[in-house]
Design a protein around this nucleic acid. Structure first.
Length: 201
DNA sequence: GAGTAGATCCTCT
DNA sequence: GAGGATCTACTCA
């Protein structure tokens, strides 16, 4: 299993990176407790030109500062007062691109994930949706700015690749306020996977 | 199965 | 002081 290198994140095409992230494994290791899952759904946020992005129009604040850094870092933030959302920062310095991880297929540490989410048994809701992903992996806002090249949190490749036919694309979720940009096909998912949010297809 | 309301708090205006 | 890159539970059918 290979940890993805900095070059993977620092490429220019955030849409391509989103597609490439499908099938990769997101791992967290907090004090030796390891949980991981295969990425089956994510969304691209194309920085300044994307109204749905926090960095829309070049907006730059203390919260989203991390998106203006180099690719290969985590951007975590709290939404609706309840949900922690985990993003992967991409591209080079001053280009605020990011990929939101929306769903995982659980691999390691399922018992730990059940504890964190206070669920009794494994079902498709465990790591379905970005709020649940962060909860199951124990990701909270204090980890925003963490490097994805370290040992605490990283993304690995075990050689699994999905073919073009297995990958679906659609509009992003929950960004209706973004006008025309809400219609962009920037959400990518693995067809038929039960952990993908939204309606089954 | 589908639709709607409520939770809940950090961040920027 | 308002609103958000969401989820769950509850209603109604």
């Amino acid at each position: 299993m290979m940890k993805l290198p900095a070059e993977f994140y620092q490429r220019k095409n955030v849409v391509q990176i989103s597609k490439d992230l499908l099938g990769k494994i997101l791992v967290t290791n907090w004090n030796g407790i390891v949980t991981s899952g295969r990425i089956v759904e994510c969304e691209a946020y194309a920085g300044a030109i994307d109204k749905a992005s926090h960095a829309s129009g070049g907006r730059r604040t203390a919260r989203n500062e991390i998106m203006y850094g180099r690719g290969g870092f985590a951007y975590v933030y709290l939404c609706y007062g309840i949900h922690h959302l985990f993003n992967v920062v991409t591209n080079s310095e001053d280009v605020p691109h990011a990929v939101l991880i929306r769903a995982l297929d659980p691999l390691r540490g399922i018992d730990e994930m059940l504890l964190r989410t206070s669920k009794k048994k494994l079902d498709h809701t465990l790591t379905r949706g970005p709020g649940n992903v962060s909860k199951a992996l124990g990701i909270v806002t204090k980890y925003s700015g963490s490097s994805l090249l370290g040992d605490k949190i990283f993304i690995a490749d075990d050689g699994i690749k999905y073919s073009r036919k297995q990958i679906g694309a659609s509009q992003r979720i929950g960004v209706d306020y973004a006008g025309r940009d809400a219609l962009l096909p920037y959400r990518f998912y693995v067809k038929g996977n039960p952990f993908v949010s939204g309606k089954p297809r």
